[in-house]
Design a protein around this nucleic acid. Sequence first.
DNA 1: CACAACGTTCAGAAAAACTTGAAAGTAGTG
DNA 2: CACTACTTTCAAGTTTTTCTGAACGTTGTG
Lengths: 190, 190
Amino acid sequence: MDAAAIRESFVRLWSSLGTFWGVPPTTAGVFGWLLSRSEPADAQEIMAGLELSRGAVSMACRELRAWGLVTAQRVPGSRRILYAPVDDLEKIVRNVVQIRKRREWDPILENLREWIPELEADPAPENAVFAERLRAMEALVELADSIVERFLKGGTVSNLGLKLLLGTSRGRGEKARDAARSRAAAAAEP
Amino acid sequence: MDAAAIRESFVRLWSSLGTFWGVPPTTAGVFGWLLSRSEPADAQEIMAGLELSRGAVSMACRELRAWGLVTAQRVPGSRRILYAPVDDLEKIVRNVVQIRKRREWDPILENLREWIPELEADPAPENAVFAERLRAMEALVELADSIVERFLKGGTVSNLGLKLLLGTSRGRGEKARDAARSRAAAAAEP
DNA sequence: CACAACGTTCAGAAAAACTTGAAAGTAGTG
DNA sequence: CACTACTTTCAAGTTTTTCTGAACGTTGTG
């Protein structure tokens, strides 16, 4: 498989990954395509490279800018805009996590906090189990929330990772992963 | 808002959450509906409760069983099957994470490991940036992988959470979250 | 064995999500 | 200001995903 084929597969993979972080495949594909190139590209190049319509490219780039995943720069003396991918992976993860948290987790927590007292006020016994489950859920979401919050505010990914990796009890047949782990930790903290 | 209305909103919320963990809304809705009840239910009740077709209920329940989120139990002396939601949140999270990891992350890692050496073998200089990005990505995915692996194999959620919460540097204006955190930690380790 | 009571399957309908392309907007230029 | 070179928008079309329902399979019963 040569470089061109790898690039193509990579873009395909990245496109299909879109669902995972909540954007349409084309949008994710544009980001992947940008990542696979060493230079920024303008809309026409993206159109040509991915066989997309002008409109699709425009919308994908807008979305990517909104996620903080690409930067746009105007070429002086022209209306052309060059798009470059943000390639700091940590920043990418942070942006995605932050936006999804706001969009998805925060509303959940709000709902739970509103529902639980109302359910508890209702004396019907068949609600007890439901209320209890909601309470457990609230606790878990709050916990997850504070972990994510801490990640967003502060520590680096590798920091976070190392804490977890080294701080927890060992000796459960983990040897196989040690090599990968060290490589990962070293590379993630450049 | 009375209990019935809360139940309804909860099911709606849970349905919309389906995308988040990778199942169709109806499937997620069935799980939410089961969670909102204190007793197991059979297919007919689910059909009636959610206005779904027989087929949809059957498929949703199969899927939920495959994810390890509901248990099925036959009523003795009848063909009827009662479905009960697994309500151990930690188990739920673990199952979802495990399945998604297998389906989505593992293939990514395999691809990266295959592509990187091939790209490095290609002398064309415009591949250097791409290769470098793939390496960074590999490192991050491997790190994430080992964290997830550890979570799947071992520590409890609250364990994991506490390690992170208490082990990392403090003093960045975190006071506001302390209350929520303690409640969460206490409730998650019953 | 035949019938009743359920569960399962899957081709096709319905709905949702995505993309296109043509029209409209805007910045540079002579 | 008129013209060109771009980008943005959005209604309509296309593709993908999800749901339905009728036909089929199984288990229990008399």
